[in-house]
């Protein structure tokens, strides 16, 4: 879907991108990295807006020579405000469609459809200038969808949204690949959003791509089965004693949580048995997985 080969970009003395080689595939791909890692430069190169060294192909088209065609097939939801004053949502989306090459009536129909999808029903005839933050984010999403793109770039789509709207936006994003057959690149700093929504990730740091692959590859989907996090109602030390006596390695973490490494032949049943014996109420068992945050830091720090 996106192929980069020795992609480089310098702004004067500053190297924004350095010899990037990567093939990026997936349904919903998280684009992660600290500030200044080169994400926005990468985007500009992929959309064919700036010249660059090396080669970059998006949807099979070369970004160096086919920028406008790529932009016809790609939707961009920017982080910042990107509107024209004095227009309603419908007018803006229709204009957007026309600017991407759709005939007027087609653009109008799709504008309405996109606005419905984004959840802006009654308000879509009112001028955008009066919209709340949540509504503005929805319009930004709708205008990125109106021209039927095959690939969407979403830049901090949940910015400024309250928890409910954030949830709704993430639901919309998760739905998009099935409903509209498009792939998504999601650029964000919020790792829990990525965990919820993405199946692949690209991590950048200091102008280089440090990781490309699935989320599972990034943090090891299945932690080792015997390594557990155990939650109890109270008295963790009693449970710890019972488990240690049975051959497990136990480390207390909080007043209600233990990290437990079971002995080789044991199953989770051992935990239940020890809990019953110790008279402790079990409230949670799960396999210890590296959190996405920890995996991310690991990748960044290895650079």
């Amino acid at each position: 879907m996106i192929e980069l080969s020795r992609l480089g970009k310098k702004f004067g003395a500053i190297t924004a991108l350095a010899e990037v080689d990567a093939t990026i595939e997936g349904k919903i791909i998280g684009l992660l990295g600290p500030n200044g890692a080169g994400k926005s430069t990468l985007l500009k190169c992929l959309l064919g807006l700036v010249p660059f060294d090396g080669s970059a192909k998006v949807l099979g088209l070369s970004a160096a020579t086919h920028g406008p065609e790529i932009r016809d097939r790609v939707g961009y939801m920017p982080e910042q405000e990107a509107f024209l004053t004095g227009m309603s949502a419908v007018e803006l989306c229709t204009y957007a469609g026309e600017l991407s090459g759709l005939p007027r009536t087609e653009a109008m129909q799709r504008a309405h459809a996109s606005l419905y999808y984004a959840g802006l029903e009654e308000k879509r005839y009112q001028p955008i200038d009066g919209y709340s933050t949540g509504m503005k984010q929805r319009v930004k999403l709708a205008q990125a969808l109106v021209h039927d793109p095959e690939l969407l770039f979403l830049d901090e789509p949940t910015n400024g949204l309250d928890p409910r709207s954030r949830d709704e936006m993430l639901e919309l994003i998760t739905d998009l690949p099935q409903r509209r057959g498009c792939a998504i690149v999601l650029s964000t700093h919020l790792l829990p959003d990525v965990e919820r929504v993405c199946d692949h990730a690209v991590i950048m740091n200091k102008g280089r791509v440090r990781f490309v692959g699935s989320i599972d590859e990034l943090r090891g989907a299945r932690g080792r089965l015997g390594e557990l996090i155990v939650q109890v109602k109270a008295d963790p030390d009693k449970l710890a004693a019972a488990l240690t006596a049975a051959g497990a390695t136990v480390k207390p973490v909080t007043p209600v949580q233990l990290h437990v490494d079971l002995p080789a032949s044991a199953t989770n049943k051992l935990v239940f048995q020890c809990a019953r014996d110790a008279g402790v109420q079990l409230r949670g068992i799960e396999v210890r997985k590296e959190s996405l945050e920890a995996a991310f830091l690991r990748v960044i720090e290895a650079a």
Partner: peptide, 15 residues
């Protein structure tokens, strides 16, 4: 917990 032990159920996660 009682049901798990009595029924011999293999629990992989509890949350």
């Amino acid at each position: 917990a009682q049901a798990v032990l009595e029924g011999g159920v293999a629990v992989s996660a509890l949350s």
